[in-house]
Design a protein around this nucleic acid. Structure first.
Lengths: 332, 332
DNA sequence: TTTTGCAATCGTAACGTTACGATTGCATCT
DNA sequence: AGATGCAATCGTAACGTTACGATTGCAAAA
């Protein structure tokens, strides 16, 4: 591999001048800059990442700490575009992206601490924030640039990108109301989950605006599988006052609900109106008319990198926070 | 951050001795080793990745070059566990994994060349091999350790891990025959694709063994979307001699075919027997009885790292190749 | 007593880069 | 002529690590 020393020797210049010439240093004569660049190109010079990192202390690497999917593969379809968006944006900004997968056995705080100590990344992306997430304080204290995908209930300012689940659930509920629904069922994942809490809040806001009291029996938790969704919705349909609208949590929840409907000879879009999340492909194909809220996850990935980069460049600048909106594709 | 120099100063030792002690060098007195390790632990010493990389020339980083999904997100469900398997295995082997996403605009050869020149990885994982893939020769020539996910038609030995699509298609066809099917339809993706060619070959082998001539009209190409699959299968069902068995290419192909069946009031598992790929979750839930061939993609990821690591450790050793088998879960 | 051998440790250089503070040569000003 | 200023370039040190070849001290052998 060609290095600065070789180029310097070839042109009878010092390593210093070559180094400066390659970054258009004002101290170097334009004609010398041209000669150096020509030589660099000719010998295929590429700066050595490690030499530079050692000297400057900046590694041009970002690390994303991502929990593995274990219980189910719910967020798979969302996580891959997220990764792709991040890697591409990172690359364009001159960084490489390293993925650090964590298993449920890994302590999230320890995983972050390890990254911190190794100091091998210029910035960190953390996901799946829990309530009062200790990692936020840790990273702020250590002055490690980071960005979170998701929010937590801390009253410290920190940079994050999140999906506006509150607004999406609000809109979903409103759409169903527009179809004439008043008894609207809502699928949630774990109640402790911040995203679920937001969805519930958006649902509540829409219901309150419409003056409809909330019936707790219409709110289903743990909609991770088609089975749980199907069983839950089947019970609702069997009740004396069944729902006429449904906001699904995800693709599996949708498939489960459709199954329950089919079993009873009911039709989605006629007997029960349905709005779901992130299942555009499926919803477009199904005979049933289903509204879909989709989120551009590659865009979220790009935003994460954008916010993180500005954090790295200006660690004392204003704390950026981004709320990504969903896009609604109506049933018809 | 603590470094060797600090530990050395604290214990009145030389940097050399500390460095050696930390890797249990035989030249260092056991009691000194103990003292050094204690001090290292106390001050939270972690070796600086970049200093070490610069000195040794080994970066402890692997890079996976992965094409982004653009046309569709078919392999999403497969690619995420692949990434997770790779990152985890890499981490356990003491490497970190960097993801290099490529867009269709990126020239695959140039992407590899860039990685080569930067020399910032100890090894490369390449995927989506094309016929006579030029990257294989390039990497072999440059003596860059690599492993391919997938095979190509070169008569050079190179390390790869691949799914045994030939065998899977063979078994799928046999399963359908066991159900009594003789007219068996086969879904493929692009014909040029090596995986599709393998599937076709396995199908052909099973048919030949059973003495059934191959009817080209039963072989469908371009099964990327539910729409194409539904249309294709609908036409087959409308023909004078419709198929009684179907081997689907993937989940979308399956959903499309089920749609076509439903439209005609036919039932999967009775009128037409179906075997599909990688849709365990869906197949388990559907009322129709459908056999599924699933492949452990996280396992493929681990294997890739394993083969790559042995390549790095012993570049002149025997070229390892791995064929990963599918696991069949019968309809009932 | 000198030599040999060995265990334990040390000093220095190097990996490739960049930052800092010289140094050189030359034109311009006094 | 000497001083000043400036543009262009250079030399050295340093980032943290490891490899190599010393060097030290001490016990055992000659």
């Amino acid at each position: 591999m060609a290095n600065l020393k070789q180029i310097a020797a070839e042109l009878s210049l010092s390593v210093t001048t070559v180094s400066r010439a390659l970054k258009d240093g004002p101290e170097v004569q334009p004609s010398t800059i041209a000669r150096v660049k020509e030589a660099a190109k000719r010998v295929g010079y590429l700066p050595n990442h490690y030499g530079r990192a050692l000297k400057t202390g900046r590694t041009q690497t970002l690390t994303a700490v991502l929990p593995m999917e274990t219980r189910d593969h719910l967020s798979d379809l969302l996580k891959l575009p997220l990764i792709e968006g991040m890697t591409l944006a990172a690359r364009q900004a001159g960084y490489s992206l390293s993925i650090y997968s964590t298993t449920p056995d890994d302590d999230p705080v320890e995983s972050v601490q390890r990254q911190l100590q190794a100091r091998s990344a210029d910035g960190l992306i953390i996901t799946r924030l829990v309530s009062a997430d200790p990692r936020v304080r840790l990273l702020l204290d250590q002055r490690m640039p980071f960005v979170a995908f998701g929010r937590t209930d801390l009253d410290i300012a920190y940079p994050y990108v999140d999906v506006d689940n509150e607004q999406i659930a609000y809109e979903a509920t409103r759409r169903l109301m527009d179809k004439g629904c008043r008894r609207i069922a809502l699928q949630l994942l774990v109640p402790e989950d911040q995203a679920s809490a937001m969805r519930l809040s958006g649902y509540g806001r829409a219901m309150a605006e419409a003056g409809i009291p909330i019936d707790q029996s219409l709110i289903g938790h743990g909609m991770f599988t088609m089975e749980s969704s199907a069983g839950w919705f089947d019970r609702l349909l069997a009740s004396s006052d069944p729902p006429t609208g449904l906001a699904c949590a995800n693709e599996l929840g949708l498939l489960g609900a459709l199954h329950a409907l089919g079993k009873r000879g009911l039709t989605a879009g006629r007997d029960v109106h349905i709005v779901t999340r992130d299942s555009t492909r499926l919803a477009r194909f199904l005979p049933a008319r289903i509204g879909v809220h989709s989120v551009d996850m590659a865009g979220v990935g790009r935003k994460l990198i954008e916010v993180l980069e500005s954090r790295i460049i200006n660690p004392l600048g204003p704390v950026e926070t981004v709320l990504v909106q969903g896009r609604f594709e109506p049933a018809e």
